[in-house]
Nucleic acid binder design. Structure first.
Length: 573
RNA sequence: CGGGACGUAGCGCAGCCUGGUAGCGCACCUGCCUUGGGAGCAGGGGGCCGUGGGUUCGAAUCCCGCCGUCCCGACCA
């Protein structure tokens, strides 16, 4: 039971100028969050209630799946991160600081190191495995560019779970349990989502799935097959190797060096030489852990840096600087080509059947025509290095694919022995041999889940909470608090609803009806009971559904039972 | 880190170009009136104009530095 007049719930009529997406605007307007500084937010009572709802669903499903809750430190000593190798690898996202003794620490962006340290000290035998431990903690990642409010911020609440198994099949079972738990969690939250194959990123490991809440405002792209279950993150989506047709060297035309003054981009090259992007080979120079690598790709395709990084098994992959381009090719950027280049050369599958193509000449203001593999240069290998695009087909079954956008709310990883090996998390197996524990890790963004829910559930008036995440189930709105009959009925209803197990907000403010209606719609409470002078004479109140906007006059003494039933069925999955 | 913009009352903004010590809407306080979709009238409170320096008789306004915030980019040679 909560009286609106006493609640800290500052709503706003105006859209905050720094908020771009609906969820951010509405969370601020509805009095859920306030920004402290870039990427760091305070949760107000209404926002916190929603966060608690998400957390509770997560807790119940994690417990159901056999995981146990712990609470790990946010501040972590550098020693553990040095041991895992991530003190160097993690980069600027890791917020580091020193204590009074000048020892290095970080604020945990994730907790593999801490949990692995804990478990290696306490688990010695296969009899103590498997174990799955989770926590709900505040993480800190010093994002390059925080945006979209609570969706991409620096300090954020996350549930993270870690599984430890004695063997591969056990690890796969643990992974499957988490996958199933995540599916239940997001279903219970009332979200439309899709689990897609994903890259494992800096967390590392062998394979993973992302759970994406479908939304056009989402930052992640995905593809999915119209015919089979294949679905993948854009960065992960595979492209099969095309069938190679053996090229006949007798059809190779002689190489021609062409003067192409100030012609650099693929567009300019095509215009100047009147050819198609499909006739041009783009030579991209990357610095891979500091070493230059030339990557060849067809003119109109895009390199997928994640694929490149994985193929090269590199830590850091970035486009080479102008200086490096000059050093390796002997020409300024815009004229790089594979012939005579002084570094490794790899090529994308898109080039596998190309011949007599155009390429940079490694000489300022010159390009080459009629280049050919083998004759003019050799590539180390052909690989899947490009971004999937419209027109590509499903890598599994060959049928059409669709593109969509989503918000990453959950991610499950099979880590393997990456951390147990680096940090020596071992156990003694049945056969008396010391073995590495096989790990998995599983994250859910709590605040992001709430924000994603708003992206999917709002209208012109405000948020439309699905019952499971709603901060309150019902708002009771006497239209005029100076009318004793309305207030008396309101108090009684408020008591009855609360006794029926519902979460009720009683709008006892001395405000005009219109103000109360606007606020109720804005904060998105699923049900509103309006008490007005006309209906009260008949012993009735009006029950309004926020989502459908349908209104039904109902005898006061039947409202609690009706809403109890409605809410219960909405919570049941 | 590169580019752009913006910092003036709790919020949204004007004023700056053309220097003369600050204004509008919402919100807030008091009173009257009103009471089913963000009412009306009257009165009122609130601002080192981000910060430090400079120019000037005089700076929110012009110049320089710094800090902060937001947007775009940081993959196409």
């Amino acid at each position: 039971m909560m009286r609106y007049s006493e609640m800290f719930l500052p709503t706003g009529r105006e859209t905050p100028s720094d908020a771009e997406v609906a969820s951010h605007q509405l969370m601020v307007r509805a009095g859920m969050i306030r920004k402290l500084t870039s990427g760091i937010y305070s949760y107000l009572p209404l926002g916190l209630r929603v966060i608690r709802k998400v957390e509770q669903i997560v807790r119940e499903e994690m417990n159901r799946a056999g995981a146990q809750e712990v609470f790990l430190p946010a501040a972590q000593p550098s020693e553990l991160w040095i041991e895992s190798g991530r003190w160097e690898m993690y980069g600027k996202e890791l917020l580091r600081f020193k204590d009074r003794n000048m020892r290095d620490y970080c604020i945990g962006p994730t907790h593999e190191e801490v949990i692995t340290d804990l478990v290696r000290n306490e688990i010695q035998t296969y009899r103590q495995l498997p174990r799955n431990l989770y926590q709900i903690q505040t993480k800190f990642r010093d994002e390059i560019r925080p945006r979209f409010g609570v969706m991409r911020c620096r300090e954020f609440g996350m549930k993270d779970a870690y599984s430890f198994d004695a063997d591969e099949s056990g690890a796969e079972e643990s992974y499957r349990k988490m996958f199933d738990a995540y599916t239940r969690i997001f279903e219970r939250c009332g979200l439309g989502f899709r689990a897609v194959e994903a890259d494992s990123g800096s967390i590392g490991g062998s394979f993973s799935h992302e759970f994406l809440v479908t939304a056009d405002s989402g930052e992640d792209g995905m593809v999915y097959c119209i015919a089979c279950p294949y679905a993948a993150n854009l960065e992960k989506a595979e492209i099969p190797r095309p069938e190679a047709v053996k090229a006949d060297p007798s059809t190779f035309l002689p190489v021609e060096e062409v003067h192409t003054p100030n012609v650099r981009t693929i567009e300019e090259v095509c215009a100047f030489l009147s050819c198609k992007p499909g006739d041009v080979v783009k030579t991209l120079l990357f610095s891979c852990d500091g070493k230059p690598v030339a990557v060849l790709i067809q003119g109109e395709e895009e390199i997928n840096e994640i694929k490149l990084k994985n193929y090269l098994n590199a830590g850091v992959v970035e486009l080479a600087t102008d200086d490096v381009v000059l050093e390796v090719t002997g020409a300024p950027k815009g004229f790089a080509g594979a012939r005579g280049i002084k570094c490794r050369i790899i090529a994308d599958y898109s080039l596998i059947n190309m011949k007599n193509f155009v390429m940079g000449a490694n000489r300022e203001d010159y390009h080459l025509k009629n280049c050919n593999f083998g004759r003019d240069f050799k590539v180390e290998a052909f690989a899947d290095l490009r971004m999937i695009k419209e027109g590509d087909t499903c890598p599994r079954c060959g049928k059409d694919i669709r593109f969509a956008r989503g918000i990453e709310v959950g991610h499950v990883f099979k880590l393997g022995t990456k951390y147990s090996k680096a940090m020596k998390a071992t156990f003694l197996d049945r056969d008396g041999k010391e073995k590495l524990m096989i790990m998995g890790c599983y994250g859910i963004g709590i605040g992001r889940t709430a924000a994603a829910c708003i992206e999917q559930n709002h209208d012109e008036e405000g948020i439309v909470w699905p019952v499971p995440l709603a901060p309150f189930h019902v708002v009771v709105t006497p239209v005029n608090i100076n009318d004793g009959r309305l207030m008396e009925a309101g108090e009684r209803l408020y008591r009855e609803l609360t006794e029926a197990g519902l979460e009720v907000l009683f709008d006892d403010r001395d405000e005009r009806a219109g103000v109360k209606f606007k606020d109720a719609d804005l904060i998105g409470i699923p049900w509103r009971v309006t008490l007005g002078p006309k209906r009260i004479e008949e012993g009735k109140g009006e029950v309004r559904n926020r989502k459908t906007k349908s209104v039904e006059a109902m005898p006061l003494d039947g409202i609690a039972a009706f809403l109890k039933q409605e809410v219960a069925s909405a919570l049941d999955i």
